[in-house]
Design a protein around this nucleic acid. Structure first.
Length: 803
RNA sequence: GCCGGAGUGAUGGAACUGGCAGACAUGCGGGUCUCAAAAACCCGUGGAGUAAAAUCCAUGUGGGUUCAAUUCCCACCUCCGGCACCA
């Protein structure tokens, strides 16, 4: 072998990124199929360290699985519609498409430099005409199946920008861009009926191998609660329907509260218009701190159906119209909110639940008792426990015909209309004669017009005549096109299905291919998508399944949420000036070092603090490995070593291979790298002692192979020099793992006192005798009674003494 | 307030089903090389204690279970994340 040049990552990475780019995904027909997916990025301009962490985890895992002989599908794409592109257009006049495509180009370049081995031929870009077409096709299908519908809804309206704002664009009640006070407006909007799937979205969480954190977040988001709807008769006639999960407290209801937007106010509070108006304003404030409870007492009273008490009704600012019936029964003795309100307005409180095993406290309540207990002062139901009472009371009321057992959900239908240009157009037209008319399938896609103006005021599509004016597909008459576009979460709800069949022009994807690969075996991405994206994609998959498009009912079988990348303990941000740019990192240290550091510094699900020193450490490690190539090439043949050392080497090799493999399967990249480092330290030590020894070259090859998924560039170059194959993950000899010589730990009363050499096959008695003869042990046992001895074969002996 | 997660050297973090706490790395101290520095390499590095040992203390705090607890149980403290007037 000729002399080995110094480790020059720039040269090596340049050379191999070209080779990697030309390399077609190998056909792995025989291998077990594995769909490995990363959350695709929004093309904001350049990738940040958070992305790189996500993709490094994925790519390392992918390369490992391939070396284990699996057939891995590993695609990448771009979530290309969205607000930032439109804002860039407003600011600098560049068209959103141009801005987006340029960014994508740059990001692909960065990903290639990083050594990410995607199947680029399957790339999906959501603003492409083909993707738009199938997106719209899904919308039409949803419409057909009753999963898409229109309804009036409140939105955040900025009077300054004359546009609708998303919740996160409202900062303490003001527009993020122009600081106008945001108004609440009613607008007809499109919705997807995700609530149809509430029950399954909740129950199927059980089958998913997802972080407990994400599952519990979704559980809360869906928010199932079982209770009763009860009619409270009104003095004036008619009734007020309320929803409660605590019918066991019914006897303690001393007032009622309704939302300021409740329709009944039209009938029973016409005289209090001004006050109700004030109340509405107060209810609308989305203050950070808890709002002061505030209400307007109505002249009518309600009658508690179980005890006939006449109780006052308030329109109150703490009652939500969107949940339940918009009206509640209030039990101040057993609910914190009702308690606060009752205190303020001097409403009586009756305790009807007593903590179990304690004497009932009465009227002089310090605070609401909200736990369960035993019923008191509740007619025939007194003495029952809460849970039982709930069942019996509900049943009794239902029998009487004044109540109904119901299940309520926090989950709301998904509002998909966005008053924006840069999104997927909703394929319907409004015809004066025919009403809402879907665009026929043959006319898809409905594409965005090129003549829209980006002024920052209103939806640019409203100003585009060429887009707005359309002919009704039904009657052929003049009609108007829908100018709302779809929420970009729609785009990301099925992109993983399109990857599988990205060139299909007849369908969004073929069922056979989908059934072959779905569900995704491993999904990797940020925790910030715990509720939105991850719940929408689940809903989409279920809806598509019910439309017969695929078998799988869940999109992502296993999920890994990687932690954030921090700098100096804080989130990287431009305003703090603590960002680390991907390009700088690549230029200064190279992709291999960057990848290694990202994986080594912290387990993937934890936050990672970027440390320049740590990066340098990883760079040093790679250089040290590289130098071993020179040692080998400069040597004049491997020297024999004693059998002891050879045995130790065989053991160390087997242990390292096994540990790295196990760690990689379990996403423990940090400990996998530690193991490789330990092995390298071991070889170098032995080399220093014995020179280039028999087995040095083989050990070096093992290191290069194990390191390949982490540092693909350097190891590819090294493999070329060593004329070795990187295609297979090494195996290991189980017999080499069995160590014959071992020490046994000797403890006295649980404290380490000595170690004695002994094999795992040694009898307990032998060990005990040897231990008791040991001087260090005798210091602690002499003159004491030996109470008992515990022996863990091959590991440890604990001698318990008395006195 | 509720739900989830985490607290281990100066730092990032190891310790697999309860069995040698601190692997691996960073930083720091010392050394080799050098005119000098950087790089590289070698040695040391939880705290107290000692001439060196021995020994004692130590995984957020306080209890418990156990021959044995970073690991299991109970209570509490702190930090991070999510939800938050959902009746």
């Amino acid at each position: 072998m000729a002399g080995i040049p110094e480790y020059d990552f720039k040269k090596i990475e340049e050379k191999w990124s070209k080779i990697f780019a030309e390399r077609k995904p190998a056909s792995k027909a025989g291998g077990k199929k594995f769909y490995l997916l990363e959350m695709f990025p929004y093309p904001s301009g350049a990738l940040h360290m958070g992305h790189m962490r996500n993709y490094t985890i994925g790519d390392t895992y992918k390369r490992f699985l391939e070396m284990k002989g699996m057939n891995v599908f590993y695609p990448m794409g771009y979530d290309a519609f969205g607000l930032p592109a439109e804002n860039a257009a407003i600011k600098s006049g560049i068209h959103p498409r141009e801005w987006t495509m340029k960014n994508i180009e740059n990001m692909i370049l960065q990903q290639k430099r990083m050594g990410l081995s995607y199947d680029w031929e399957r790339m999906v870009i959501t603003c492409g005409a083909d993707y738009v077409k199938w997106n719209q096709w899904f919308f039409l299908k949803f419409l057909e199946k009753g999963l898409a519908y229109r309804k009036e809804s409140s939105i955040n309206w900025c009077p300054g920008c004359r546009t609708v704002l998303a919740n996160e664009q409202v900062h303490s009640g003001k527009c993020w861009r122009c600081e106008s006070v945001v108004e609440s407006r009613k607008l007809e909007q499109w919705f997807f009926k995700i609530t149809n799937y509430a029950e399954e979205l909740l129950s199927a969480l059980n089958e998913l191998d997802w972080p407990a954190k994400v599952k519990s977040q979704q559980e809360h988001w869906i928010g199932k609660s079982e209770g009763v709807e009860i009619d409270f008769p009104l003095e004036e006639g008619g009734a007020l329907k309320v929803f409660t999960t605590r019918p066991d407290t019914l006897w303690g209801a001393t007032f009622m509260a309704i939302s300021a937007e409740h329709t009944i106010l039209e009938k029973i509070a016409r005289d209090k218009k001004d006050e109700i108006g004030k109340l509405k304003a107060s209810a609308a404030v989305q203050s950070e701190e808890e709002k002061e409870k505030f209400g307007v007492r109505l002249t009518t009273r309600a009658i508690n159906p179980v005890n006939g008490e006449k109780i006052p009704i308030f329109a109150a600012n703490f009652v939500l119209m969107e949940y339940g019936t918009g009206a509640i029964m209030c039990v101040p003795a057993h609910d914190k909110r009702d308690f606060a309100f009752a205190k303020k307005y001097g409403i009586p409180m009756w305790a009807v639940i007593a903590p179990e095993g304690r004497k009932p406290k009465d009227a002089s309540l310090e605070d609401a008792y909200t736990d369960e207990g035993v019923l008191i002062n509740s007619g025939d139901f007194s003495g029952l426990k809460s849970a039982e009472a709930r069942k019996k009371i509900s049943a009794a009321l239902e029998k009487k015909g004044i109540a109904k057992i119901v299940t309520r959900w926090h989950l709301r239908d998904w509002l998909v209309s966005r008053q924006r240009y840069w999104g997927c157009p909703i394929p319907v037209v409004y015809c004066e004669k025919c009403g809402i008319v879907p665009v026929p399938e043959k006319d898809l896609p409905v594409l965005l017009p090129d003549d829209a103006l980006f002024t920052g005021e209103g939806n640019p599509l409203d100003g585009s005549k060429t887009f707005r004016e359309a002919l009704c597909p039904k009657c052929g008459g003049a009609s108007e096109r829908e100018t709302d576009t779809l929420d970009t979460f729609v785009d990301s709800s099925w992109y993983f299905l399109r990857y599988l069949d990205s060139k299909n022009t007849d369908k969004p994807f073929s069922r056979e291919i989908a059934d072959d690969w779905m569900p995704v075996n491993q999904y990797i991405g940020g925790i910030e998508h715990a509720t939105m994206h991850l719940i929408y994609a689940r809903f989409f998959t279920k809806a598509l399944r019910d439309m017969g498009m695929l078998k799988a009912g869940e999109p992502f079988k296993k999920l890994l949420c990687q932690g954030m990348v921090l700098k100096d303990g804080g989130k990287m941000s431009k305003s703090k000036g603590n960002t680390v740019s991907v390009d700088d990192m690549l230029n200064e240290y190279g992709a291999d070092t960057g990848r290694l550091f990202i994986l080594f510094a912290s387990p993937p699900e934890k936050d990672l603090d970027w440390s320049e020193e740590g990066v340098r450490g990883c760079s040093r490690f790679l250089t040290r490995v590289w130098k071993m190539l020179s040692l080998l090439s400069d040597s004049d043949g491997e020297k024999e070593i004693p059998e002891d050392s050879a045995k130790e080497l065989r053991w160390m090799t087997a242990k390292t291979v096994r540990d790295v493999e196990e760690d990689l399967y379990g996403f423990r990249f940090n400990t996998a790298i530690s193991s490789i480092q330990e092995f390298v330290n071991f070889i170098r030590e032995m080399q220093e002692r014995c020179g280039v020894f028999r087995g040095f070259g083989q050990s070096l090859k093992t290191v290069i192979t194990l390191l390949h998924p982490f540092a693909p560039f350097m190891t590819s170059e090294a493999a070329e020099i060593l004329r070795m194959d990187l295609g297979k993950f090494p195996g290991f000899s189980k017999t080499a793992l069995e160590r014959t010589v071992k020490e046994i730990i000797i403890e006295v009363n649980g404290k380490l006192r000595s170690k004695i050499p002994a094999g795992p096959e040694a009898e307990k008695d032998e060990i005990v005798n040897a231990a008791l003869a040991d001087v260090k042990v005798r210091n602690w046992t002499d003159g004491k009674e030996i109470k008992k001895t515990i022996y863990i074969p091959g590991k440890l002996l604990n001698i318990v003494t008395g006195g």
